[in-house]
Design a protein around this nucleic acid. Structure first.
Length: 560
RNA sequence: UGGCCGAUAGUUCAGUUGGCAGAACGCCUGAUUUUGAUUCAGGAGGUCGCAGGUUCAAUCCCUGCUCGGCCAGCCA
């Protein structure tokens, strides 16, 4: 990738911890991480940060990283999500050491729960959720002990086995850790370890009707897999004490893993709540989880974001404990940087305006040679058919040009990219006075785009020959949310949903674009990067536009 | 209200085991350019949240304060 650079990238607090663990020989120089999604939705850009971190750490330290499904709640989980998540992780460029499931450990977790009961560290509670919640107390008020807290180990054991065997209804009993109802950390006030739920589980089917909670499953799953560094987001920091409590009270197969928390990723104009993304899909605001406007990994893939750009972005923003919201423009700049290097250049006209070249020899056909990618000599050239009837962009002609307008206007000469110099002489208008056709003359001496007399033009515009144009549907995307921080304050994020987040146009493409591969991203010259749809290559999605100085000039004028 | 975490250019974030403060994005100049793109060169832009303390020296360590985030699911 990058040539060896002498500048060392600054080290983050997680790598610092790993380095010091390695120095002290804590895990015998072993580094093992895991990415642990719950399969209740598809992955989004926030997960991508965690993936890049966990797999990146494993790569950097010659360690391994598992993909582990945290499938401890049968209610919301689905096989489609499992398959989709595996696919998304691979697409991002990472190969899990192993794909594992918390549900693989249900029997071990159950045995460990029995061992807790034997030692008087857990009890069965008969109270309902509401009562337990009330007894938990508040931040400044102590909790109350459950009346069932002092059952004997034998009694608890019999009851817990009964829970597993199906003697009780859903919600009738739970298993709780016996810690401290006055603990200042609410997570430590006798948390629930097991609940009864007669629900079909994606992997275990109906084998189990009791399910461990996150807190009882997570640390132990880490320990079973011999994870060394268990990295999660900030909101789990209060769970760390419980994570440690569980592991310290069990016979572990390996050295105790340690949890470290980092700040999750937020982006402007974007939401990263699985629940809310699901709502967008379900109410039809978007076409699906893979709609190009979605911040999901599948959405970004369909949109044409290269996985390498996403990785480079994550590398750049680094990892810290400061809650942060990055500008979506920053991500887009990484997309442009990558695409500029690799994408083929093509010509496409999004909003066509007819140009007739009045001095073009009747019936003459012509092939122009165009460079495929000025950033990559090996990309070669292609032929583009030229004729006396062309499509140009409506924006590239102005009857009454604003100041600093370089493009085509009556009496002005411009260059057609890879073609000829043309001068506009006349227009045809419709009944409303709109220009529907521009009549030009071309200079045959300027074939290839240079004038032998050395005269210059200020603008070069793109074009497509009308006779051979390929029709295509092109989706132009704007931000999904108009608000830079959707849902900030007390606003409902969906209330700032942008009604104009997608504009669809019928475009005219040069013939080479008929052969594009599904999913391939090209640059439409002067417009931006566009991805052929994964399922239908005659449909294009605008991945991201080019930087646009002309738009800046106009904006500045508008703002005074 | 208790606990934990945070606060650094216009913006978003790094960083400093205490020694002249960094990046990207954005913005502005100029050069190159058959994309108003790219590339290159340069520029503007900071009381490092506030107040004390320790120190030869504090953005960094300590104390207090202010503001923001998270925590009282049988979700993860």
């Amino acid at each position: 990738m990058s040539e060896d650079s002498t500048e060392h990238t600054p080290i983050d607090f997680i790598r610092e911890k790993i380095n010091s663990d390695n120095e002290s020989g804590k895990y015998g120089n072993r580094v093992q991480t895991r990415f642990p999604p719950e399969p209740n939705g598809y992955l989004h850009i926030g997960h991508a940060k965690s993936i890049c971190l966990n797999f990146g750490l494993a790569d950097d330290y010659d360690g391994v990283c598992n993909l582990r499904f945290d499938d401890t709640n049968p209610e919301t989980e689905d096989q489609d999500f499992v398959d989709g998540i595996i696919e998304d992780v691979r697409w991002l460029g990472y190969e899990p050491n192993e794909v594992v499931y918390a549900s693989d450990y249900f029997e071990q977790l159950y045995q460990w729960a029995e061992s807790l009961i034997e030692r008087g560290l857990a009890y069965v509670d008969d109270q309902d959720a509401e009562t337990i919640s009330e007894q938990r107390g508040g931040f400044t008020t102590p909790g109350q002990n459950s009346p069932f807290r002092d059952r004997t180990a034998d009694e608890n054991m019999a009851l817990f086995r009964g829970m597993r065997a199906g003697d009780f209804a859903d919600g009738e009993k739970v298993l709780r850790a016996k810690i401290d109802m006055n603990h200042e950390n609410m997570q430590m006030r006798d948390p629930v370890l097991y609940r009864i739920r007669r629900e079909h589980h994606v992997r275990t089917g109906t084998d189990w009707i009791i399910f461990p909670t996150y807190d009882w499953a997570h640390g132990q799953s880490d320990a079973i897999e011999k994870v060394t560094h268990s990295i999660c987001t900030l909101e789990f920091d209060t769970h760390r004490a419980l994570y440690d409590w569980c592991l310290e009270n069990l016979e572990l197969p390996a050295e105790k893993p340690e949890q470290t928390e980092f700040a999750r990723l937020n982006l402007t104009h974007t939401i990263t709540s699985k629940r809310k993304l699901k709502a967008l899909v379900e109410d039809g605001s978007v076409d699906g989880w893979d709609d190009p406007r979605m911040p999901t990994i599948r959405g970004m893939r369909r949109r044409g974001y290269p996985a390498a750009s996403i990785r480079a972005f994550m590398d750049h923003i680094g990892v810290s404990k400061a809650n942060s919201t990055h500008d979506i423009e920053l991500l887009e700049s990484f997309i442009r940087t990558e695409l500029n290097k690799i994408s083929l250049r093509r010509m496409a006209v999004l909003r066509p305006l007819k140009v007739v070249i009045t001095n073009w020899p009747e019936g003459q056909s012509d092939m122009r040679e165009a460079i495929n990618n000025p950033e990559d000599d090996t990309a070669g050239t292609r032929e583009v058919p030229f004729s006396g009837e062309l499509w140009i962009e409506q924006d590239d002609f102005a009857l009454d040009p604003p100041p600093k307008y370089y493009r085509l206007t009556i009496g002005r000469e411009v260059r057609l990219r890879a073609g000829y110099f043309i001068t506009a002489n006349d227009v045809v208008t419709d009944d409303d006075g709109n220009v529907v056709e521009v009549h030009c003359t071309y200079d045959p001496e300027t074939a290839g785009g240079q004038a032998p007399d050395g005269r210059k033009v200020k603008a070069t515009i793109h074009w497509v020959s009308a006779a051979t144009a390929v029709d295509a549907t092109v989706h132009l995307y704007d931000r999904l949310f108009t608000d830079s921080h959707p849902g900030s304050g007390d606003t409902e994020p969906l209330s700032s949903l942008n009604p104009d987040s997608r504009e669809t146009v019928q475009a005219k493409l040069e013939p080479a674009l008929a052969d594009i591969e599904p999913g391939q991203v090209v640059q439409f010259e002067r417009l931006g990067y566009f991805a052929a749809d994964i399922d239908d290559a005659s449909v294009f999605h605008r991945t991201v536009g080019l930087r646009d100085e002309w738009a800046n000039i106009q904006k500045r004028k508008q703002n005074g």
